Simulated assay, not measured.
Amino acid sequence: MTKKLLTGLVFCMALTAVFPILFLICGSFMGNMEIRELLMPVLGNMEGFASWKLMPQYPTMMHYVELLLDSPEFFVMFWNSVKLTAAILAGQLLVGTPAAWGFARYQFPGKKILFTIYIALMMMPFQVMMLSNYLVLDQMRLLDTMAGIILPAVFSTFPVFLMYRFFQGLPEAIMDSARIDGAGELRIFFRIGIPLGSPGMISALVLGFLEYWNLIEQPMAFLKTKEKWPLSLYLPNISTEQAGTAFAASVLVLIPAVLVFLAGQDYLEQGIVSTAVKE
C-alpha cells in the first residue's frame, strides 16, 4: 500500500513538472484565435481566469512554418547561440581542465586559500559581479562584442570545481606507477588524467550547455546590437499577439537542451554525486 502511495505521489510530481512542456507543445499547434480565446484574461488584461486545453481544437503547423521560413532573425540568433555556447564550452575545457588537475593532484603554497576563493566566486550571482564585469569589459573595449560574453564565461569556476572532484578521486598508485615507468607529468595528464576524468569533463560540458544555451542576463547587459543577440533574447521580444510563435520558438529552443541532457544524463548524475562527496 505504501509503495502504491509513493508511486502515485511521484507520478503526480512528475506530471506537475512535465505539464509546462505539454502546455508549450499544445500551444505551438494552436491557431491564434484559439490561443486568444483561452488566454484573453491574461493577454488582454480582462477579468476572469485563463483556461487551457491539452489538445488543440484545430491543430496547425502555421507557427512553425512562420518561424522557420519567414523569420530570418530566428536563424541569426540561433547561430549566435551556437557560436557562444560552443566557444564557451571549448574555452572552459582548455582552461578549466588543467586548473582542476593542478588543484587535485599537486600541492603548492596557498592552495587551500586559492581554492576557497574559487568556491566563493562560484557562489556569487551575476548581479553581484555585473558592474565590475561591465567596467572591465569597457576598459578592454569588449562591450557589445561576442568576446565580451565568451571570455568571462571561459574562466568560470564551476567547471573547475566539478572536474576537481573527479581528478581528486583518481588513485595515486596509478600516477606513481606511470612515474616509475618514466612518464612525465604532462604525459600522465594526457594519457591518464583526461581518459579517467572524462566523466567529470562531460558532466561539466552538459551542465555548461544547459546554462549557456539559455544565457540571458549577460547578453542583455553587455550586447546592444540586436544582430549579436543569442536565441535566449528572442523570446522576450515576441509580442503578446504572437503567442503561438512564442510557443513554437520555445519548443525549438528546448529541443537541443533536452537532447544534450538525455545524451549526458549518466555523466551528469556522476557529476552530481561527486560534488556531494566530502574530502
Rank of each mutant, 00 (worst) to 15 (best):
E185M: 07
A86Q: 03
Y267E: 01
T2P: 01
F155W: 05
L9N: 11
K224I: 06
G96D: 03
N80C: 13
Q270A: 09
P219M: 01
V154K: 08
I255W: 03
A147E: 09
S250L: 05
L196T: 01
M1A: 13
N133D: 13
M46C: 08
V136S: 10
I188M: 13
L151Q: 03
G208H: 03
I238N: 10
D138G: 12
F261N: 03
T97D: 03
S198I: 12
L9C: 13
G148K: 04
L223Y: 01
C26W: 00
F161M: 02
T16R: 04
W101F: 14
V65T: 12
V277E: 11
V206M: 00
L268A: 03
V206Y: 02
L15G: 09
Q270R: 09
K4D: 07
E172G: 14
T157I: 03
W79H: 05
A90Q: 09
G169T: 11
D266C: 00
G110L: 05
T97Y: 01
M175H: 11
I238M: 14
L252M: 15
E34N: 08
G244W: 04
E211M: 05
L215N: 02
S198A: 15
L131Y: 12
V128P: 05
L210Q: 07
I88M: 03
D70N: 15
S177Y: 06
L233H: 09
M140T: 03
M33N: 12
E227N: 08
P56K: 05
Q92E: 10
Y58I: 07
I194W: 05
M220T: 11
E227D: 14
T157W: 06
D70K: 14
L6E: 08
L114A: 14
A17I: 08
M33G: 04
K278Y: 10
Y118P: 01
V206S: 04
W101L: 05
K3S: 14
A246C: 13
Q270W: 00
A221F: 02
A104M: 10
R187I: 04
K226W: 06
L259I: 15
I180D: 12
T116V: 12
P109C: 10
D138C: 02
E34F: 04
A153E: 00
I202E: 02
A178F: 03
L5E: 07
C12K: 07
L252I: 07
L207V: 09
